[in-house]
Amino acid sequence: MALRQSPVRLLIADDVGVGKTVEAGLIARELLDRGEISRLAVLCPPHLADQWVEELRTKFGLDAVAVLPGTARRLERDCNPGQSVFARYRFVVVSLDLVKTDRWRQDFLLNAPEFVIVDEAHASAEGEGLGAKRHQRYRLLEDLARDKERHLLLVTATPHSGKEDAFRSLLKLLNPDFARLPLDLSGAENARARETLARHLVQRGRKDIHDYLHADTPSRGGTMQNSSTHFTPSTRRCSRMCSPTLVRASRCLARRITGPVSAGGPRWASCARWRVVPRPPPLPCGSAP
């Protein structure tokens, strides 16, 4: 699905523990192996940076560096005169709140790689009453998305928090035309709009994976069978508020990607429709040749 797009613009909105990091990494690794990209950046909250660095290294052989408030100055000192941190290192995991500041914003925009993953993307959505910090994050992502050749993956377990304008602000980063989608996408007259949106949206719950594999599979919260006990009442209420746009597009997408998978597959086996190759040797994080 993702690899049919050029560039890849996708909102990955699977539940916690289903495997969003693996899905994003599979896409990045495949594009690197094909030679379609040479660099990538992950934008995330600082507390998730070490996790991303570890996941990229152990699962995909990518040695990334973390550019955080506590490391940015040191990494900058290691650069050649006039060289940007973001140009020196091929693979970076960056604090979004660092690069949204005036000190780093323009440097990142000028040297941003061709493939960008935004984790916890809901925290950058723009909407009424969401505050100045979100506005700054969204303006940065909007500027990144203006490059029509840039691959952009938005990753979040909570794409819709009950605010329709915030959800649609994320969709606009994938395709500006989504700003004109009707609020109600039901009916035959909106079939084309649903199909278009479904090509840019992935949302699977733990129950979807359980039903897909016809077996209990390991997850961070235990087996799929008992995972519902880990959701709080507020989380369930939020899920019931999920936009009809999101629900209909997800159902449409599910019909497009279903296919046979062995019952003993791992928790992220629903990604198997992407071509998976044996793990290659690690790629260095230093400057590209």
Rank of each mutant, 00 (worst) to 15 (best):
P7W: 09
A13M: 14
G25C: 05
L31P: 15
L32R: 02
P45R: 01
H47S: 05
H47M: 03
Q51V: 05
T58F: 08
L68M: 06
L75P: 04
G82F: 11
S84N: 09
F86P: 00
R88T: 00
V93C: 03
V94I: 02
V99T: 04
W104I: 10
Q106N: 06
F108A: 01
L109I: 04
L109R: 01
L110N: 00
P113H: 01
D119I: 08
E120P: 00
E120K: 12
G127M: 00
E128P: 14
G129R: 04
R137I: 02
E142N: 03
E142T: 04
L144T: 02
A145E: 04
R150H: 14
R150K: 00
R150N: 00
R168W: 14
R168K: 10
L173N: 03
L174P: 01
L174H: 13
D177I: 06
L181V: 03
A188M: 14
E189L: 12
A193V: 13
D211K: 13
R220W: 15
G222M: 01
M224Y: 09
S234Y: 08
R251E: 07
A254M: 09
G264R: 13
P266K: 13
C271M: 01
A272Q: 12
W274K: 10
V277C: 03
R279Y: 08
S287P: 07
A288L: 07
